[in-house]
Design a protein around this nucleic acid. Structure first.
Length: 190
DNA sequence: CTATTGATTGAT
DNA sequence: TCAATCAATAGG
């Protein structure tokens, strides 16, 4: 199992967001390995008011302007972290938020980290999957094309994709930038 | 320096 | 529907 290459991420962000669906987020740690299928994503673009990099470069959003294939992990609501993949060319402040996974491996470890047993509540939400996968703020800026946290290609054919508007934002609410696998039971928000 | 707010979650 | 909880950000 090998990581997707940088070229995968160095493309139009909406395309990466769609093609990420079905691929596998993997994290090897001392505690063990957790792995889940990406079933829901959102794109955040330049010129998009909901994007953290919409205005100027700041210490927080800096990594979004860097090379593709890096992690952007941010803290929000005083208690949660969310995980994004930096996309498009260096200098372009865009990223894809991973919103939900279908847990496939390391379920026991996920349950231990989450403190909750229901499989459908393990990774169905951006802050939930971060907790279940053992992703921390230390992963911000980490290189996803090498190392212990990465995305591996799916072994299955490309899934059917549903396109909708994004969740939880106050601006850019009408943009069709949320994508999920049709019929999947592990989408965020029951 | 101060005030506001948020790409959420879990409980009520 | 609502509280929890605080770093980042914008403004003075």
């Amino acid at each position: 199992m090998q990581p997707l290459p940088e070229e995968f991420y160095n493309r139009e962000t909406t395309r990466v967001a769609r093609e990420l669906l079905g691929h596998l987020l993997v994290h090897h740690t001392a505690q063990g390995t957790t792995l889940g299928k990406i079933v829901e994503t959102e794109a955040y673009l330049q010129g998009d008011p909901a994007c953290h990099a919409a205005k100027k470069m700041t210490p927080r959003n800096r990594v979004m302007f860097g090379p593709p294939g890096r992690a952007y992990v941010y803290f929000t609501y005083g208690m949660h972290y969310c995980f994004n993949v930096v996309t498009n060319a260096e200098g372009v402040g865009e990223a894809v938020l991973i919103r939900a996974l279908e847990p496939l491996e390391g379920l026991e470890l996920m349950i231990k980290r989450r403190g909750r047993p229901k499989p459908e509540e393990l990774c169905s939400g951006p802050a939930r999957l971060v907790q279940a996968m053992g992703i921390t703020k230390e992963h911000n800026q980490c290189i996803l094309t090498q190392g212990s946290l990465f995305i591996a290609p799916s072994l299955e054919p490309p899934p059917d994709i549903v396109t909708t508007t994004r969740i939880g934002i106050k601006e850019g609410v009408d943009l069709p930038l949320r994508f999920y696998i049709q019929g999947n039971k592990f989408i965020s928000r029951k």
